[in-house]
Design a protein around this nucleic acid. Structure first.
Lengths: 153, 153
DNA sequence: TTTATTTGTAATTTGTATAATTACAACTGA
DNA sequence: TCAGTTGTAATTATACAAATTACAAATAAA
């Protein structure tokens, strides 16, 4: 499976907008170079985030903004924006309906999978974009501190 | 993305063995026709389930058995057997390390993703193969009852 | 009001993970 | 012995995400 990094990249994009707003021009080109993807992918993701009401953009103008404060955007909001209702656990929808197992496994698993999926989504809903940004900034400070230390050794 | 149904198919396979043991020969051919996949895929999955200690097979003999009672096998056991440590949420590992966001997002997200993943896996660990089999058999009975009803109408 | 820049989006190509297929040695049991 | 099966490797086919290409529409600055 060619794995999808849309969810990760969308969070990256939102954090980037917040951290670099006013410091560098927020063109799809600049954002793409941080994610290391194509500007077109960035614009597509931004289109979906815009439709979900998470950012505001203006056609022709390289200046996207977050539509809400970072503590009012949860990771679940981002997930739903770019992955829609994509299941976390895939069910095999092509099983033999003539068989007791094949004829009932899909419905059965979808119930149990759903419970697990909701547990995961509840955690995503508890995590705010502000948490992610705070963690990024702390990790960055720690890195810078370690580098400074090394310079004096 | 070509989605993977290995997890679903592995549960299907185990339920099939339990329900049809002694009723029909448990050849990879017969199991495959219920899953609607190839016999080779079934034999591969069985190989992984065997290595994980969930089933016992004998080379050349079409007679796999569950290695434990169905209430001692959880969906998490099956997941780990066939998906190993495959992450539920994929992190983009190719981001620009020169950027504050690109340089810290991977570590950051892996922490939050892990929390969500553990919540989901805990639910899978709470669900036993016996639960799945019970649900399948109940659903089957319900179907048969409805069909009988229709015959008298 | 022209011109360079950018967004937004569609169409096409490319890369790659997964499943299906092919092939066959090794084992089993009648 | 021999037909049937498992276990596994190698190859091919398929499906889909990402990258690329292309361009109309909007913007901003000269």
């Amino acid at each position: 499976m060619k794995i999808s990094t849309r969810f990760s990249d969308a969070i990256h994009l939102l954090a980037f907008i917040h951290i670099y707003k006013g410091k560098i021009p927020l063109t799809s080109e600049n954002i793409a170079s941080s994610i290391e993807t194509s500007p077109v992918m960035v614009r597509k993701l931004m289109g979906e985030l815009r439709k979900a009401g998470l950012i505001e953009t203006k056609h022709g103008t390289p200046d996207p903004k977050l539509a809400k404060p970072t503590d009012k955007i949860s990771l679940l909001d981002v997930y739903l924006a770019v992955e829609r209702n994509k299941p976390l656990f895939e069910i095999d929808h092509k099983t033999n309906p003539q068989c007791i197992v094949g004829g009932n496994i899909q419905e059965t698993l979808s119930e149990y999978y759903n419970q697990a999926e909701i547990a995961a989504k509840a955690k995503l809903n508890d995590t705010r974009l502000s948490d992610v940004i705070d963690t990024i900034l702390v990790k960055q400070k720690e890195k810078e501190y370690l580098q400074k230390q090394q310079n004096y050794e």
